[in-house]
Design a protein around this nucleic acid. Structure first.
Lengths: 225, 225
DNA sequence: CGACCATTTGATATGGATCAAGCGATGTGG
DNA sequence: CCACATCGCTTGATCCATATCAAATGGTCG
């Protein structure tokens, strides 16, 4: 019974589709886990948790954007992912967080006590399924990130833009700095800028500081290949 | 109950330590899952499963080495990981394999029916824990791979060597070609060769085709940083 | 207005890719 | 047993994408 439910957990995948989760994120249908959470606000640039701290909570973004990252010994930073409203982050299998997490903008997150979820998962098949789905979603994210990192600069930027939520009018409102984008894509800030400029020169996008208008999505998709 | 068991699943991590798992891999203590498997042999370069095929089985390597990979539209190949005796591969959350898998050398693997495992997991807490641990191990592998891909060529090669099992006498027997190593590290075959040559020139390793002797592991660790 | 920070643009440097050729081991057919 | 083809590996020469260094611009907030 549990078996079949876990196998098909994919149906409960956490969606990254912005449309399904407006700025102020309501409870989603089918999500029991978030009923266990308590809301907390974090100001811009606040640390939510640090690398190697005990993973006592999972977090669901209600508003704002969160980045996870790891600082290398030489001081360089690698961003593991961006999390927007509806996304869950901080899911770990071990007892410690593998990355640190920070608020990119002021944000509200639901803090969900891990041991409570785990206890619940033991009794409630739906919760066990949700958990399995969350970790699977995270695994897929990370696998895709690997494929991203072996591409050319232009391809990386195109892929990045395609994974950002598009609001009205083909416009992307980027919550993060060029620096953040660079650290996510494994590129320098200058290369990110120049690539934006080049995509603009080829009429693929229009750049208005942190607002990007997609003018030729087919071209982005071609680069994404 | 299940909760606490899942939380501490890390203790059941699949070890990559060769010493714990000699060429002919015996059943490991604490592993119930593999009791459910049936052995199968694959000749060198045989496909074990393909990208996007239904993930009906998990696999445990008993002897030989396996690579998982993905072919990009432009024909280039990215290797997701190498799996040696004792490692489990093909663990997916969705219903399809995300990567393809091939035997690098002749090998024997245990094929473990997924629905059998899942059914078992519903009843047997130990099996549920093992599953959770396996997916967590895979997630960690992939996260580390990301950190690898943002390093310099020399750092990547150093990291690669440090994750390979060392047999007697500080010697690594590489089962895979330079091409494979390159595709794993996101480097060309020439760069892999030259980096080996350079590490040899700096007395860090000795290269005897596919046999690498570690001469200065501290230096490798420094590069690994 | 002035300070500060993020972004953009320009000039130059460089690590790794690409192109090309040689080398050693392995295997095959004569 | 040798001649030759093949394949994996190595090494050399050159090129190019991206990093690095530097400076100008623009936007925001006190």
């Amino acid at each position: 019974m549990l078996a079949q439910n876990i196998v098909s957990a994919d149906k409960f995948r956490v969606s990254k589709t912005q449309s399904a989760c407006p700025p102020t994120c309501p409870a989603r249908s089918g999500s029991t886990i978030e009923l266990l959470g308590i809301p907390k606000g974090f100001p811009r640039n606040a640390e939510i948790y640090g690398d190697r701290e005990p993973a006592d909570y999972l977090y669901k973004v209600m508003s704002g954007t969160v980045r996870t990252y790891k600082v290398r010994v030489d001081g360089r930073r690698q961003i593991g992912g961006f999390y927007i409203p509806g996304d869950v982050f901080g899911v770990e299998v071990g007892d410690e967080h593998a990355f640190s997490a920070e608020a990119i903008s002021d944000c509200r997150v639901l803090m969900i006590n891990r041991s409570v979820v785990m206890a619940r998962a033991a009794r409630d098949v739906a919760v066990a399924r949700e958990l399995w789905s969350l970790i699977g979603h995270e695994l897929k994210r990370v696998q895709d990130h690997i494929l991203l990192l072996i591409k050319s600069a232009e391809e990386r930027v195109a892929s990045f833009l395609l994974e950002m939520p598009v609001s009205k009018e083909n416009t992307i409102e980027l919550p993060m700095s060029r620096q953040d984008i660079g650290e996510y894509l494994g590129l320098t800030i200058e290369t990110v800028c120049r690539t934006f400029a080049h995509l603009q020169a080829t009429a693929t996008i229009e750049v208005h500081s942190r607002q990007i208008v997609l003018r030729n999505r087919a071209n982005l998709r071609r680069l994404n290949a």
